[in-house]
Write a protein that binds this DNA or RNA. Sequence first.
DNA 1: CAAGAAACATACAGTCTGTACGCAGAAACT
DNA 2: AGTTTCTGCGTACAGACTGTATGTTTCTTG
Lengths: 198, 198
Amino acid sequence: MQDGKRRTNKERSETTRAALLEAARRLFIEHSYAGTGTPELVAAAEVTRGALYHHFADKQALFRAVVEAESRTVAEEIERAAPEDLPPLDALIQGGEAFLAAMAVPGRTRLLLIDAPAVLGRRELDAIDALHGGRTLREGLDAAMRMNALRALPLDATAQLLGAAYDRAALAIEGGADPAAWRVVLKALIDGLAAAPA
Amino acid sequence: MQDGKRRTNKERSETTRAALLEAARRLFIEHSYAGTGTPELVAAAEVTRGALYHHFADKQALFRAVVEAESRTVAEEIERAAPEDLPPLDALIQGGEAFLAAMAVPGRTRLLLIDAPAVLGRRELDAIDALHGGRTLREGLDAAMRMNALRALPLDATAQLLGAAYDRAALAIEGGADPAAWRVVLKALIDGLAAAPA
DNA sequence: CAAGAAACATACAGTCTGTACGCAGAAACT
DNA sequence: AGTTTCTGCGTACAGACTGTATGTTTCTTG
């Protein structure tokens, strides 16, 4: 009892924080935010509610941390798949493809696209998204517009509208829809924004 | 106590049901679904919790009824503004305009676009939407495609993706964004789907 | 008008959230 | 090393909420 248990405070904190985040991610994805109680959550993490409320202000703060981490993961997966040296329009399609692949991880759509806006509010979710997932799309659009591959349009609005379309596609695909049809329409939307030859 | 209170059962039911629905709509819009407790709700409706659970299976069922009613109202406002005799593309833009106007009613975006998917699930919300709001867009797209004003694309996916874009636009506008920029991009998206002259 | 049903009202049990307080181990200080 | 302070965490508690069960009143029906 006194050998393997000699840990520094930082170690203790990081261990329980990680356990909480992992359990929270699993349960929020499995049963949704509202459907997961803190007693069940801390049991899964093998800590107590005291530890939870020591590390996070409330249940919502824990959820926010989970969403931020998941959002960052998605952004990383997209950037890892981004080839950089493609024509701008193809790069957008590729990035979109990577997004859909990343969102195919079970439960991610509900966590990031359904629960997160309701729990955190769209305002705060936009702030998170601006740092991670949405940023990649925005950068891609900006590059495409600068290279005159896309019509000049308000960047923010365009990024958000295209992002919303991709979000819905991810939801539909997770819901069992035929991915091919959705890809076709997404490509048509992007092609439609291409610079007019006139 | 026995004069003005002689009412048939149907009258009683309809009165309290209406009171519940109206109070629920107000409070769900003001404080969100999770932020509105049934005690507060029934107090606002001037009935008791017993009446609530007599008319609705649970809080979620009441919420569903509110969402259905609000969704129907939005659809009606859109159809009232639909001029029928416009060129298909203009009709789409007009319908979209009517949608944005309808969604400008304070709180509607959170009720229908944020809370509803989280509380009812996207599956069930799609079913409601197919009867009301989403149906109008789908019909408009179908007409436009039949008249060769739009490229032939999978109808369901196209309707959902455009719908998602309009939803996001409504959210952004309620959030204080400049409506003009968003209208420009929405129009660009639709124009981009127009039948290629080739 | 009596009997049954419908529309409520009230009381209760279970669960959840956030907070207050207490304790043990680590860190800081001398 | 010893003492003090602080951090991390466990436990107990108060308040609120949801859904149910049961009682009461008002209508309906034969």
